[in-house]
């Protein structure tokens, strides 16, 4: 089903692959898009099914699907994915710049773009992102590869277990958990992205990011523990930090809260001073 009634689907050619995007606006309409960059094994629809329409009620939204580089003869690099996003930004948002929002691997890609091509990025939001893979992540990554080649059913369970926070999973019924497990898929390109995840290191770049930045860390994240968000917060000069009490799957567990954070930030990036943490909304 279409991600949003107003979204127009299009492609931009990058090297020998087509990068798909969904845009609720058009170049030249003067509206700065909120640009959503998904994470490992995801897509615009799978990671932003709820967030996209929420944001689209107030903003121009542009989401991108990473394209699987089938003919690549070397290992996938973060620059390959960055090039795909950059191509779409140049095509769709050259006049306005972008409110770049990256999730997980998409956050690492977005941070890379903000560092390398600052003129394209008006603001930067990094959800469950990280700058350098550590050994806790490497161990999980190694289990992933083993199961990917050995036992896909176990991998489905393992990734479900890892992706969601315990308060969320623990509150579901057996059938609901089973449905989440069954729904996990392994689209083409996921293995290459998982290999890339083993070796992420953009530490030397991110200190140079000058865009106002919002870091969103997830309290119960096993995949990218919140420490990584705190490190990003430590490294990026114009950054403020928010915490969402979810697992890694924040866009699925807490979409409304992410919406509230992103909307508030892109509307007035400096409302919260750099170097400070955002108090969560009291309920």
């Amino acid at each position: 089903m279409k991600i949003h009634p107003d979204a127009v689907e299009g492609q931009v050619r990058v090297e020998d692959s087509d990068v798909t995007y969904y845009d609720t606006g058009t170049p030249g309409d003067g509206r700065t898009p909120v640009v959503l960059i998904h994470g490992t094994g995801g897509s615009a629809t799978s990671h932003f099914r709820i967030l996209y329409p929420m944001l689209a009620a107030r903003h121009r939204v542009l989401a991108i699907n990473f394209s699987h580089l089938e003919n690549l003869t070397r290992e996938l690099r973060i620059e390959d994915l960055a090039a795909q996003v950059i191509a779409v930004l140049e095509d769709r948002a050259a006049d306005t710049g972008a409110h770049l929002v990256g999730y997980s691997l998409g956050a690492a890609v977005s941070a890379t773009i903000a560092a390398d091509r600052p003129e394209l990025v008006n603001t930067l939001t990094l959800i469950a992102g990280w700058a350098k893979t550590d050994q806790q992540q490497a161990l999980r990554n190694s289990i992933w590869h083993r199961l990917f080649h050995g036992d896909r059913d176990a991998l489905r369970e393992f990734t479900t277990f890892e992706a969601y926070g315990h308060p969320f999973l623990g509150s579901l019924s057996e059938t609901e958990v089973a449905a989440l497990v069954a729904a996990r898929s392994f689209p083409p390109g996921i293995e290459e992205q998982m290999k890339l995840n083993r070796n992420i290191n953009i530490l030397d770049k991110i200190g140079g990011i000058c865009a106002p930045t919002l870091i969103v860390g997830c309290t119960y994240d096993h995949m990218v523990p919140i420490k990584h968000s705190r490190l990003l917060f430590g490294a990026i000069p114009d950054a403020r930090l928010a915490e969402v009490p979810s697992g890694h799957a924040a866009p699925m567990e807490r979409p409304a809260q992410l919406f509230q954070l992103i909307d508030g930030f892109v509307v007035s990036p400096q409302a919260v001073r750099p170097g400070t943490t955002l108090a969560s909304i009291s309920v």
Binding site: S171, A256, Q257, V283
Partner: peptide, 27 residues
């Protein structure tokens, strides 16, 4: 208790998105 309350609040807020009439969420 506050954590549970906040979970309930945001879970309800997620449902607001359905009220915007987007078919991909309403259906």
């Amino acid at each position: 208790m506050e954590e549970v309350r906040s979970e309930m609040f945001w879970a309800n807020e997620d449902r607001y998105a359905q009220r915007r009439g987007t078919p991909s969420l309403v259906n």
